[in-house]
Simulated scan of single mutants.
Amino acid sequence: MAGELFVDLVRVETRLWNAVDARLRDEHGIRLGQYDLLTVIAGRPGCRVLDLVHEVAITVGAASKAVDRLVAAGLCRRVANPADGRSSFLELTPSGVRALSGARLTYEEEIARWTSGLLPPRILEELANGLRTIRAALEAEQGP
């Protein structure tokens, strides 16, 4: 049972990611990974690359390259950290704010289509609680 659950969980995550990614790309010209990072940056004043690493569970190298791509696309910028000249903070540019704002409803609609559009609220709540428990245990053991 646990093995089948794992396979289903991975397949659902992959297909759900692909569905949301395709819609964001088609309607807003951004990828789901970019949307995810923009959301983290927007929600954390003084956000650093290391904050993205911890929040999204990616390597420092991957986070740094992803930020480079966001900067090149004009969606965010690095701002010098006045307390430490060797580091910088990340902030959305006006284009990044518009991209995130425009994509938010699309993201929410597509997620709802494949979750609350298919399952009753009680089942979704139980699923969310179970996944939070597993995530918390993994983060406690492996780190964020």
Rank of each mutant, 00 (worst) to 15 (best):
F6T: 01
I123S: 13
Y107M: 11
R15P: 03
V40D: 04
R122A: 14
D84W: 00
G46N: 00
S88V: 03
E125T: 00
A128T: 10
L105G: 06
A57E: 13
V67L: 07
I111T: 10
E108N: 12
D36L: 10
V53T: 13
R98G: 05
E4S: 12
A136V: 01
R25K: 08
N81I: 01
R77P: 03
V71D: 12
D51R: 05
L37A: 09
A112E: 13
G74M: 07
L37P: 01
G102S: 05
R23H: 09
L105W: 07
R135V: 14
A19Q: 10
I58P: 03
A140I: 05
Y35A: 01
L50D: 14
R135H: 13
L52A: 06
L37W: 04
L52V: 10
D36C: 07
D21R: 07
N18R: 09
E4L: 12
H54P: 01
R86N: 13
G102L: 04
S101M: 13
L38Y: 06
A80K: 11
Y107S: 04
S87R: 06
R48F: 04
D51L: 07
I134R: 10
T106F: 02
S64C: 04
L9T: 10
N129S: 10
A63T: 00
R69G: 07
L100N: 05
D84Q: 01
T133M: 11
R23K: 09
D84H: 02
A2R: 00
L52N: 06
G85W: 08
R11W: 15
I41P: 06
R44S: 15
Q34P: 02
R77G: 06
L90N: 04
G130W: 08
V7R: 09
E55I: 02
D68V: 02
G29C: 00
W114F: 15
V40L: 12
V40F: 04
R132F: 15
D36T: 10
E55N: 02
A66I: 03
L9W: 10
F6R: 05
I123F: 14
G43S: 12
A80D: 14
P121G: 08
Q34A: 15
R69C: 02
R78P: 00
G85C: 03
R31W: 15
V10W: 06
T106E: 08
A128N: 09
R113D: 13
L5D: 13
R44E: 15
V79R: 12
V49F: 03
T133W: 14
E109P: 01
V79Y: 04
R132P: 04
P120R: 13
G61K: 05
K65D: 12
R86E: 15
G43C: 02
M1S: 07
A80E: 14
P121L: 05
L9G: 09
S101V: 09
R122I: 11
C76W: 03
L92C: 06
A22T: 01
V40Q: 03
P120I: 07
N129V: 09
R31Y: 15
L92Y: 06
L131N: 06
E13R: 11
L70W: 04
A80W: 07
